[in-house]
């Protein structure tokens, strides 16, 4: 049997998390195929073909896949699914939209956000916002899962694999893509940044969030993140929310500024290598997960920190 990875891309390039999905897929010791679906994305298929460990890239090209919808991708995957023992992708808003639909059409369960694969049908995943780990065993013949990328090392690149083209079924037709608004930022992508600075509600306003954190982020080449409280208060856009219902990050250095440390937030950052917390409240729970805690007024400490860094 064979393993299928659903590749995520933005029309320009392959998502870096596909490399981690390849490492996860190696567990089955079976040939690995990568599905690249889109419109005019031959160059992305070629990128995927260079992934070490991939035997074949399956390329589906169609006008209606320009902004791939879950309905169309599920239809497409169903045309080739009979060949596969496992279908997986890195956990993201893209894969968690598509793969449950695929699983239901195959009449199998799906295993979301897998932390570790322990046997060919057995997985460790977290529940209750990362507070509990469960080990589950699937009884289905086809495994459909998303993987928690930061738990898997990225596969490298090597010789080019074969690229095959497949027919795309007709468009689903009952769903239309209208528009998208993507945050424009000169900063590195939050999910893969080496340094992340997150702000909480203590920043007080969108203006202060920007004024206080931005200079430090620029100096450190860091991505900005935010707690749900800060996002709900309108201090930061929703797509930089770190946590259970936002983005999960695992940078080398995570600096939590004015963040209280609710479990829903720490779920999204607890795999960071070094955590720094700066908060005025000495009892804030964030200090329990921080390597270095500084009890201080952030409006004084952050400019001081920014000034002290070369």
């Amino acid at each position: 049997m064979t393993i299928l990875i659903l590749a995520e891309h933005d029309g320009q390039q392959l998502s870096a998390a596909v490399q981690q999905a390849v490492t996860a897929a190696l567990f089955w010791n079976a040939p690995i195929h990568v599905l690249v679906a889109g419109n005019g994305v031959e160059h992305i298929a070629k990128q995927a073909a260079l992934l070490a460990g991939v035997e074949k890239v399956i390329h589906a090209n169609a006008a209606h896949l320009a902004h791939p919808l879950a309905e169309d991708l599920a239809k497409l995957i169903l045309t080739i699914s009979a060949e596969y023992q496992a279908i997986l992708a890195a956990h993201s808003s893209f894969s968690r939209n598509v793969l449950p639909r695929v699983a239901a059409l195959l009449d199998v369960a799906m295993i979301s956000d897998v932390l570790e694969i322990t046997a060919e049908n057995t997985y460790v995943r977290s529940i209750y916002a990362g507070n509990i780990l469960t080990t589950v065993q699937s009884t289905d013949t086809i495994q459909v899962l998303t993987i928690h990328s930061s738990n898997f090392v990225a596969a490298g690149f090597g010789d080019s694999a074969e690229i095959v083209h497949i027919e795309t079924p007709a468009a689903f037709g009952k769903s239309r893509w209208l528009s998208e608004v993507l945050s424009q930022s000169d900063r590195p992508a939050l999910s893969s940044a080496k340094v992340v600075i997150s702000g909480g509600r203590s920043l007080g306003s969108a203006e202060k969030f920007e004024q206080v954190l931005s200079p430090l982020a620029t100096k450190l080449g860091a991505a900005l993140g935010a707690t749900r409280a800060a996002v709900d208060a309108g201090f930061a856009p929703n797509d930089i929310q770190v946590g259970q219902t936002g983005i999960v990050v695992a940078p080398e250095l995570y600096i939590a500024v004015g963040v209280s440390g609710a479990v829903q937030h720490t779920y999204g950052m607890k795999d960071s290598r070094i955590v720094v917390a700066i908060n005025q409240d000495p009892d804030a729970p964030i200090f329990q997960v921080a390597d270095y805690g500084l009890v201080a007024d952030l409006f004084i400490a952050i400019p001081a920190l920014t000034a002290a860094i070369q």
Binding site: L133, V136, Q137
Partner: peptide, 17 residues
């Protein structure tokens, strides 16, 4: 999906102030 077991995740140790 059969639940085989549940466990506590490894806790991140608090560091220093």
């Amino acid at each position: 999906l059969n639940l085989l077991k549940v466990s506590e995740p490894p806790a991140r140790k608090a560091g220093i102030k």
